[in-house]
């Protein structure tokens, strides 16, 4: 119980919010729009999985939004040029992994602080994207949306695939040595090294994996509509980081679970529609999101102080 305090308390908050919606605005739970809303969060979920792993390793990556945008535009242009969809996914993932490898090299092998490295690469990729695409939408060929399936089937498939990815990664992180290495490096890199783990390699591969996930997330986004908006990645890094933080991933590494990050994402992603359904004015949104983040960490702070004393 105590071990999963954060996950459970966030889940509790989510249940409360959903309960309120159930009483005040039961139409929130209509199946089809609910499916659309959930599917729209799939790309953010994929990014959140990666961000959570990066943060567990005691690093951060704020360039994922830019990576996402660049991968989406790259894949979109290739698809519009006639590339087949099954090839777009590995291509986007490879492009993302390459960008992640650059971050990884600079952080792991040169020992540079990840917040600064990824700040620089965030700006770089954003400007490269602006200079090359100039804000133009890309019209995708027919058949890309929903992977040529029906809408409901496509949405279900995307949701199922992302949840499977989440479950697989969560299991790997908890139960396989490769996953445990992330926690070890994140809590104490020196101790990890002495026990035979290579912290540099672990850090490097986490960034590469993060980049690949950014590419996968970009494809998950572009199959949801017949167009690619080159601005689609803007601000996603903060959404993913906020979800991970609210879900109990510690910024100083070594602690937290992917399931927690998942619940954190669900809570944050429910706030925005809840405001619309409860008819709260749009200009309260940012303030409320800030409060939720603060409440989550304050609860944590108070609890850890009480445990300490």
């Amino acid at each position: 119980m105590n071990r999963y305090f954060r996950e459970l308390s966030v889940a509790g908050a989510l249940v409360l919010l959903l309960g309120l919606l159930g009483v005040v605005a039961p139409q929130f739970f209509e199946l089809q729009p609910l499916l659309s809303r959930l599917t729209a969060q799939v790309p953010t979920l994929v990014l959140t999985i990666g961000i959570a792993m990066v943060m567990i390793t005691r690093q951060i990556d704020i360039s994922v939004g830019s990576q996402f945008g660049l991968c989406a535009v790259l894949a979109g242009n290739l698809l519009a040029g006639g590339l087949s969809l099954p090839l777009a996914l590995p291509l986007a993932a490879t492009a993302g992994a390459a960008m992640g490898a650059l971050n990884g090299c600079l952080v792991a092998w040169l020992g540079l602080p990840s917040i600064v490295v990824t700040l620089a690469t965030m700006v770089t990729w954003a400007e490269v994207l602006r200079l090359t695409q100039q804000g133009r939408f890309i019209n995708l060929p027919a058949g890309v949306q929903w992977l040529s399936l029906s809408q409901a089937a496509g949405q279900t498939a995307l949701l199922a695939a992302s949840l499977a990815l989440l479950a697989a990664m969560a299991w790997l992180l908890k139960n396989r040595s490769g996953g445990r290495h992330l926690y070890a490096v994140g809590s104490d890199a020196e101790a990890a090294r002495l026990s035979g783990i290579n912290p540099k390699a672990t850090t490097f591969w986490v960034f590469v994996f993060m980049g690949a996930l950014a590419g996968v997330a970009a494809v998950c986004n572009l199959v949801q509509s017949p167009q690619v908006d080159p601005k689609c990645g803007t601000g996603l890094e903060l959404k993913a980081i906020a979800a991970a933080v609210v879900g109990g991933i510690a910024v100083n590494g070594g602690r937290g679970s992917l399931w927690g990050a998942f619940v954190g994402l669900l809570l944050l992603a429910t706030i925005n529609p809840a405001l619309t359904f409860l008819h709260v004015e749009a200009y309260w949104e940012k303030a409320i999101q800030g409060l939720v983040i603060l409440l989550a960490v304050v609860a944590d702070g108070i609890r850890s102080r009480r445990n300490a004393s």
Partner: peptide, 14 residues
């Protein structure tokens, strides 16, 4: 004793 990154990420929104 909360991490500054997270506190100020919260107040950044707030």
């Amino acid at each position: 004793r909360l991490p500054p990154l997270i506190v100020t990420l919260g107040t950044y929104s707030l």
